[in-house]
Amino acid sequence: MGADQPKQFLPLLGQPVLLHTLRRFAEPALQVERIVLVLPADQLATWQRLCAEHAVEIPHTVVAGGASRWASVRKGLAALIDTSEGVVAVHDGVRPLTPFTVIHNTYAKAEAHGAAIAAVVPKDSVRGLSKEGSYALNRSRLRLVQTPQCFELNLLRRAYQLPELPTFTDDASVVEDLHPIQLVEGDYRNLKITTPEDLVLAEALLNAG
């Protein structure tokens, strides 16, 4: 991003990106019982200050994360030690535009099948790399993975008892050796704020309603 602060704290229409994301899961119609926010330990004070500055009243638990995404999700799960069952969603804090329907449908499919993730069809042609150069891939058989990624709670707990491997790129890759992963139609508006251009587009989409 090249910014002077972590991208989850960058202003989006005057409020931190992370606050927009938090609101998506606090939507009353979703009936999310508990929100756990995992942040690097050195960012906890900044988030506390931003919550005071923006009068954030959304109930949530804040947990210090680990050295990797895998370790951070594991710490987030540990905060649910008093919860015995249900469906848990893992979501990127820098996806502040996730539509209600995507969140709801991913939760619902995970409740029915144990594991579900949001994904979209690639818009561009895709090629794989080879020693000779590259080769075409069938775009219709590929999906771009988004979040939320939703799982039956105890299934996700079992998955995170396994050793961390470098091949783990997201929660679905942690779970897939234990359980099939269902796909839910995502949304191209479900941006992951990564570059300055993403922030500009997010502002335009929010302004457009």
Rank of each mutant, 00 (worst) to 15 (best):
D124K: 15
L142P: 11
E132N: 14
I81P: 00
H54K: 07
A67W: 03
Q182C: 12
R141S: 13
L142T: 09
R49Y: 01
T169Y: 13
D187V: 00
R95L: 04
G86M: 04
V56N: 12
R143E: 08
N105W: 03
I181P: 10
L137F: 10
L144Q: 11
R95G: 11
Y188W: 12
I117H: 03
K131S: 13
F100R: 12
Q182P: 00
R143A: 14
T98R: 00
E152K: 10
A71F: 00
A116W: 07
T61A: 00
R74P: 02
W70R: 08
P163T: 10
L80V: 04
A118H: 03
T83H: 09
W70I: 02
Y107V: 13
T147A: 12
A79I: 06
H104D: 13
V94W: 00
V73S: 01
A64E: 01
P99N: 08
T46D: 15
P122L: 09
G86W: 07
N154D: 05
E132C: 09
S72Q: 03
R49D: 13
G66H: 06
G114S: 05
E185V: 00
E164Y: 03
T83A: 09
D177A: 15
R74E: 03
S84P: 00
I103V: 14
L155R: 02
P96C: 05
A119P: 08
A116R: 10
P166D: 10
